[in-house]
Amino acid sequence: MIGRILVIARNTLLEAVRQKVLNVLLLFGLVMIAASSYFSQVAIDQQIKFVKDFGCGAIGLIGVCIAILSVAQLLPQELHNRTIYTILAKPVRRSEFLLGKFVGVVLLLTLSVALMSIAFAAVLWWQETQGLAAVQADYVHTPGWGKSPELTNMYQHDVAQIVNQVRDPQMVEAILLIFAKLVMAAAMAMLVSTFSTSFIFTVITTCGIYLIGHMESAARDVWLSHGAQATFGQGLFLEMLSLLVPDMNSFTIVDEILDGNVVPWWHTWNLLGYSAVYTGVLLALSELIFEFREI
């Protein structure tokens, strides 16, 4: 069973790679180059912050595009090319087919995020070199440079600040959280595509849910605290939103990490667990629907 899932997953990844989906990642390179040159007017610590923001933003945006688009075209393409008939006529369960496809997309996302992270690290490393050169230039021209131990102390402190800002080990948490969000988006697209009849419908609906997911926490707060004051319609709307739409806003804690604030691992694990379980539920629902879909 695992074997068949992996065969389908590998094939899905191979398809994406041979169809040059990863070329989209060049876009990431362009964004990063544009970002780091566009912001060269501001001070170095701000530059580093901006580059970090844009890097993570671009990984998230490009990743979510890959996730939603590649899942949305999976079933329509399989049905249109009738490849699904040949596969399902083999000793393959429908659940294995669906799960294999999903794992393939997750592998694709892993590959994309890994490649983008490497490029991101390279840009940050370059920013660090620039930053350290700028700090040194500042101090070399200060009177007393090389003689005053206090000045040396301050210099070392400034250098440490830049190095800490660039080489923040918490960036691993940030990338993991972004990845978890992408996997959730892919699972949402998977669920929608099992009952959708067109690519466009899947893409628009999933993007809608993804965006609304960012406002779900606000809706939940209103529903829980002022639910009684709402009209029946409003209450029902808020309730549906709070109960059905995943909370994407919690993942914006990545912004905190980017600002250099400490987000402890236990909280990150909690979020990762939440997304993993949510993904599992979405996949289970997809399977239940796909099982009786006419193909």
Partner: peptide, 11 residues
């Protein structure tokens, strides 16, 4: 099973 007008993964 050989489907009618089979198409497979072109890649």
């Amino acid at each position: 099973f050989l489907p009618e007008n089979p198409y497979f993964y072109g890649f």
